[in-house]
Write a protein that binds this DNA or RNA. Structure first.
Length: 324
DNA sequence: AAAGGTCCCAACCGCCTTTCC
DNA sequence: CGGAAAGGCGGTTGGGACCTT
């Protein structure tokens, strides 16, 4: 029965990853694709726990990751989604496909929380946001009878819709004010939904699935980036305004297109985020609560329903689940 | 210039859910 | 079907970088 342990505690290396380890991991994933993390340490010879390998890949090595330089739109989206979802960073990250949950979490903890706190101090103490998430989870969990549950459900849906509608409105406004910030992103997403519906769709439109191939050139660039970053993460702070990241450098980055061999087999096509967004907007401006329940609960490819019992799984894993 | 404080983020830890045997 | 491991997620922290005095 059972499976062998994923990693025995003895002989497991901890701490920062070295460029050599990164190379081993990247080239292994290049050949085999991500997944089956349990076998990664044994098959690569890395003295790392499988979880560590997975985290390293998803948070740092995975192609297409944008790091640092959060735009105003992203900030707004994070703030509103945090108000809506609480500290469910994976779910929030599913709306910012270029960002990792860890990155968003860090950004929230180091920037946004304090910023909001200051704003809250300036305005009214217990006015807006975190209460929404808290109320949501506690109310859903606490509702014991069906009638109570249904009433709370409607309240929750109302709150959720309002918060998300505010988020989209804020982002639209932001787009008009700060168009420059989102242009690079918008330029890459040419899907009809992105262009037709709103700035919100624009700002969170799916990035192109970024192929990555371990060419000598890419490796050289990787190592270059590592050597810089190992001297200090100032590189991250100083990273190009286009949020040129180590990850994007890892992918085809600025390399000549001819050097970027496409190997789509490695990364599965990303889910169609814009259509999800359209669904959200449809839902936002619909009146039928049962539709909202359907949207929140099932049938949209999300891992679970917002209102599926005491441990709601709104967007759980969400779009990121299929990103490889 | 140096010491101390603060900030930031990569990575670890532990819990929960899902999957497998 | 139940138990155990894998996978996933959020919270936390260690240590390097940066800032202030």
């Amino acid at each position: 029965m059972g499976r062998p342990p994923c990693c025995d505690k003895d002989g497991v290396k901890k701490g920062p990853w070295t460029p050599e380890e990164d190379l081993v991991l990247v080239s292994y994933i290049q050949d085999h694709g991500p997944g089956n993390w349990r076998s990664v340490p044994t098959r690569t010879g890395l003295k790392r726990c499988s979880k560590s390998c997975r985290l390293r890949w998803t948070n740092y090595l995975r192609p297409g990751i944008k790091r640092g330089n959060f735009t105003a739109q992203e900030e707004k989206l994070i703030v509103h989604l945090q108000a809506l979802l609480g500290n469910r960073w994976a779910a929030i990250a599913s709306y910012l496909p270029d960002r990792t949950d860890n990155d968003i979490k860090n950004y929230w903890n180091t920037h946004l929380r304090r910023k909001l706190q200051l704003q809250a101090d300036g305005v009214s103490p217990s006015s807006s946001k975190p209460a929404t998430a808290a109320n949501k989870s506690s109310s859903s969990a606490a509702a014991s009878t069906k009638g109570q549950w249904e009433r709370r459900l409607q309240t929750d849906i109302g709150l959720a819709r309002r918060a998300l509608r505010e988020a989209l409105t804020a982002i639209r406004d932001g787009d008009e004010e700060e168009d420059d910030d989102i242009k690079p992103q918008a330029a890459s997403g040419e899907s009809p939904a992105a262009s037709s519906s709103s700035g919100a769709s624009m700002s969170i439109s799916m990035s192109q699935p970024t192929p990555y191939v371990l060419t000598a050139d890419n490796v050289a660039r990787m190592l270059d980036g590592w050597s810089k970053s190992s001297k200090g993460r100032a590189a991250a702070a100083d990273s190009p305004p286009s949020s040129g990241s180590s990850a994007s450098e890892l992918s085809c980055g600025g390399a000549a297109a001819s050097e970027c061999v496409r190997k789509p087999a490695v990364s599965a096509p990303a889910p169609e985020q814009p259509s999800e967004l359209s669904a959200i907007e449809t839902w936002l401006f619909a009146d039928d609560v049962s539709n909202a329940v359907g949207f929140l609960g099932h049938g949209h490819g999300y891992g679970g329903g917002l209102l599926d019992g005491p441990n709601p799984g709104l967007l759980g894993g969400g779009l990121l689940d299929g990103r490889f």
